[in-house]
Write a protein that binds this DNA or RNA. Structure first.
Lengths: 236, 236
DNA sequence: CGACGTATTGACTGATATCAATGGTTGTGG
DNA sequence: CCACAACCATTGATATCAGTCAATACGTCG
């Protein structure tokens, strides 16, 4: 449950020192430049751009126009938990308080737009509610599902967010671009890279999915995949 | 990850059949009577009273005045995940949609009051935000913390919600009534009853807590307990 | 007192983590 | 264009934490 973790960027270590400044973090390369946000409606950001960091002065909310953003928290020893993966239409950065409660970074070339503060109360409630429901579903997954169930659930979730109904070959099949790496998935699902990889292999061998070039996933049997995800059908 | 589970009440099975009626569930003994809600400002309910059930027609929100309410989701095979334990002042039942997204039941004699619909937008946002933050903290706990870390985190959470600063003997000690059973705790923390019990024993032997009569917990060393909860200090 | 529900403890098992080796892809610079 | 490095993914061997099974103890209520 502890051990091998990715190295923390300096900023993150600061955030955990309990003395994080209430000023925006220095504008690193790869860190979103706050000035230019005001000028443009939306920005195209490269992969692995840090949008905001846990513990720093509260950032505005962002709407994902295109691409994918991961939000996550980290423990002081580097253990990371991805809280959500957000695709087009989703809003990240919701929450009160004067500090960000989690970090956010892009997982691929992504277009984000700053959400202007006076967001309609109703819209805010809807966005908060959706985020809450997803967070609770994640808790169910993390607390009570097996590794294959978690991976199947993740694939279905991502298919819903990123999938095109492009069933060019078979009816009912869906294909989507897999933004998260195996490490991202592992940190989202409470597993290790190796376990995620093994589950993918099993799902492929069972004929439920297919993967091309490591980042293009095709759902071959969505219905059976849903059964696995819900724990109603064991895998192989 | 699967196996021994508590028996599901019939109602819950219905909720999972995908054909749950959009009418309120029949008023069983132990199920909160909706009629009387309108008449009284708050109701005193016995332990294990079901406040509302996942999958059924959307219930109003309730404010916990006194006692403790658990919200939870269940998988079709009976695996249960407690999403939150709510003490005095907290609101349960938040969320949109026409069905309840989770069930709720009292864990001890509890006083609840129905939250009148036109809740101030600001209050609603605050309550939603707090619930969201707790849910995300739970995800971090479930995905990345070890069993002793989870139990320590839970004790600190409950101390915050139910603790009185009644340090009659030592300075800094806090005592609180433990509403959840070991099973409830296990379902909240993604563990088994046995593991929760073993962690309690270890925390007691380490001198971090004391337990009287199975349901009265005293924090002997809150600071060290917080270190364990954060993963900054291994246990024994 | 006896019965039931709950908690504790011990012995053993098993799913997932850890460690380790290999292979594939991408990007960079000679 | 190729060689190399860096990163990511896969696969196998082994270790470990938490789960399972089982027995006992505790507490409350009839």
């Amino acid at each position: 449950m502890s051990g091998r973790h990715r190295m923390l960027p300096m900023l993150q270590i600061l955030a955990h020192a309990g003395e994080a400044p209430i000023v925006p973090p220095p504008s690193l390369s790869r860190t979103l430049d706050r000035q230019s946000q005001k000028d443009t409606v939306s920005q195209l950001l490269p992969s692995r751009t840090v949008v905001f960091l846990e513990g720093f002065a509260r950032s505005p909310c962002y709407r994902v126009v295109d691409g994918c953003v991961a939000t996550y928290q980290t423990l002081s020893d580097g253990r990371r938990q991805v809280i959500d993966l957000a695709g087009p239409g989703r809003i990240v950065g919701l929450g009160a308080g004067d500090r960000n409660r989690h970090s956010a970074e892009t997982l691929g070339f992504s277009r984000l737009e700053v959400v202007v503060e006076p967001l309609a109360a109703r819209d805010l409630e809807v966005a908060l509610t959706e985020t809450l429901a997803r967070s609770q579903a994640l808790a169910m997954l993390l607390g009570r599902k097996t590794a294959p169930e978690r991976v199947a659930s993740a694939i279905l979730d991502l298919a819903g967010q990123f999938g095109r109904p492009a069933r060019h070959k078979r009816r009912g099949t869906v294909t989507f671009h897999l933004y998260p790496t195996r490490t991202d998935l592992a940190d989202w699902l409470g597993l290790t890279v190796e376990t995620v990889s093994r589950c993918f292999t099993r799902l492929k061998k069972a004929g439920l999915i297919d993967i091309q070039h490591n980042d293009l996933v095709t759902l071959l049997e969505p219905a059976r995949l849903a059964l696995v995800a819900a724990g109603d059908c064991a895998l192989s």
